[in-house]
Design a protein around this nucleic acid. Sequence first.
DNA 1: TAGATAGTTGACTAAATTAGTAGGTTATTA
DNA 2: TAATAACCTACTAATTTAGTCAACTATCTA
Lengths: 147, 147
Amino acid sequence: MKITSKGRYAVLAMVDIAKFGENTPCNLSHVSVRQNISLSYLEQIFNDLKKAKLVKSQKGPGGGYRLNKESSEIRILDIFNAIDEQIKTTGCGNNPKSSCSGTGQKCLTHNFWENLEGVIGNYLNSVYLSDLTAGYSISDERRVISE
Amino acid sequence: MKITSKGRYAVLAMVDIAKFGENTPCNLSHVSVRQNISLSYLEQIFNDLKKAKLVKSQKGPGGGYRLNKESSEIRILDIFNAIDEQIKTTGCGNNPKSSCSGTGQKCLTHNFWENLEGVIGNYLNSVYLSDLTAGYSISDERRVISE
DNA sequence: TAGATAGTTGACTAAATTAGTAGGTTATTA
DNA sequence: TAATAACCTACTAATTTAGTCAACTATCTA
């Protein structure tokens, strides 16, 4: 159960933009240095973010990226969707009608995995970019003591 | 944000064992056929499950695997831990003191990712194997409508 | 209008991980 | 003692990830 670096980077870079791009556009070289992410990789990510209209761009000197909405209107789930970071725990294909593991019917655990996806999705949908820039604290949620 | 097949298989196979192994040990060939999982792969998985004492084995003809506890005492998180399916969304190493992306300090999103891990962990910790054998329903939890 | 800046695009690739396969050994029981 | 089924280790093919590289286009400023 992991997140891809792309997903982590996308959220981190959006927080960076939200934080440093309030008055002036942020160019990716700066984001790259501040957050320690490869510039070329950032370019790919911002390509997706722009297509999803989460950011807008300005070419040329002094240009860069800015948020396209208030950070209080951008949900983390929006960022995940933009870069196609799917929340996918079931074994079946994208078609919701398709069966699990090619057996022609739902596997014994299908509903459970769907619920897990729901739990994760609900959470990502409930957190806004503005929550992160405000210094989201660990005490905001109970943590599980695993093991 | 995905689960590995190993993780999916482990939970599915445990449900299978819980369901079909009540009176007699389940041999993995049968599980393999019923759940459509490679036998050799199942063997590896059950090796881990046994080490974690979630199942016990019986060699020889008529042998197989059975649960080592009541299914109402086995949490899904236990299964994840047994096969080392980690819930890991932060970018930093295993050492909790280590920094994110080698910068020597926590990244801007660190707390958020930790919270996400907590949300997932709490959920997996709250569901028992017995919930799944009882026909866990999608209506047990609210689902998010994403996109 | 030249040159620098910064976004845009697409093709390519090394490394890591996943998802197995293959082949044998050991223990048990009928 | 033959069949069964767990146990164990090494290997590998495929996929995904996490980038790199190279070129192009738009825009601003001097």
